[in-house]
């Protein structure tokens, strides 16, 4: 069981999982079902928690365990459950209607991944030997971030925008744990708290938009112009 203590193996493991995070992200772009989307998000968040745990293990950074647990609690359990309840409650159609069609969306996601790798490349300094996890995970994190951003643009419904925002935040979280082994605990807690409140606030807004407009389609919110 040597590999359990070999940081190199840990790095490889993390890189692999990070790749899966990206795969999930692209899958969300392609997925049309809202509920499936939320579940994919949960799975992605779970992977993140796992990455956090792996890093905590190999780098002997116990406070990252806290982050991992928080992730599981908030993003794997609480937020998907809340979102799914909201979906049920406001009885929207479960179909996602993206603005750009799915194949093209996937292609764009690919392009964004490319951009992210170009950006990540500049962090590759083999000569200094620094940053054990290196540019690879950063590139993934940026990809996830950019694709999440793209999903926000590409989604019509208020709710789908909310969890696109959440996936975007997952990218940042990935970067945070991979690059810096997490933020200081206070900050992490603050961030989680904010995410939670943001979901609450956005949830209220989603609910009220649904009530007022009898629709969740935010592309119809076009009264304020000029």
């Amino acid at each position: 069981m040597d590999f359990l203590h070999n940081p190199e193996f840990g790095d490889k493991l993390v890189t692999l999982m990070a790749a899966f995070v990206l795969v999930f992200q692209i899958a969300m772009v392609g997925q049309r079902s809202l509920i499936m989307n939320i579940r994919l998000f949960g799975a992605q968040s779970f992977l993140l928690a796992a990455i956090a745990a792996v890093i905590a293990h190999y780098n002997h950074a116990p406070h990252i365990y806290v982050a991992a647990v928080m992730t599981v609690l908030v993003k794997v359990i609480l937020v998907p459950v809340l979102l799914e309840r909201l979906v049920d409650r406001i009885e929207i159609r479960h179909e996602i209607e993206p603005i750009v069609n799915v194949p093209l969306s996937i292609v764009i996601s690919g392009g964004l991944t490319l951009v992210a790798y170009i950006v990540g490349e500049s962090f590759y300094h083999p000569e200094t030997g620094a940053a054990s996890l290196g540019h690879n995970t950063l590139a993934v994190a940026i990809s996830v971030f950019l694709i999440g951003f793209f999903m926000m643009i590409n989604r019509r419904k208020a709710l789908t925008q909310v969890f696109a925002l959440l996936t975007l935040e997952n990218g940042i979280f990935l970067a945070a744990i991979c690059l810096t082994y997490g933020m200081p605990l206070v900050v992490d807690l603050g961030v989680f708290f904010d995410v939670l409140v943001a979901v609450l606030v956005l949830g209220i807004l989603v609910y009220r938009i649904r009530e007022t407009f009898e629709s969740m389609d935010v592309s119809k919110l076009r009264r304020l112009r000029g």
């Binding site: 170009i118 950006v119 950019l146 643009i153 019509r156 592309s219 076009r222």
Partner: peptide, 23 residues
């Protein structure tokens, strides 16, 4: 024109342009 998607797209384009520029 009121479209939040367009608004987000502006930011997105600015982000990608700046990322490439920064690199």
């Amino acid at each position: 024109a009121g479209s939040i998607h367009a608004y987000l797209a502006y930011i997105f384009v600015a982000l990608i342009a700046l990322l490439l520029f920064g690199v």
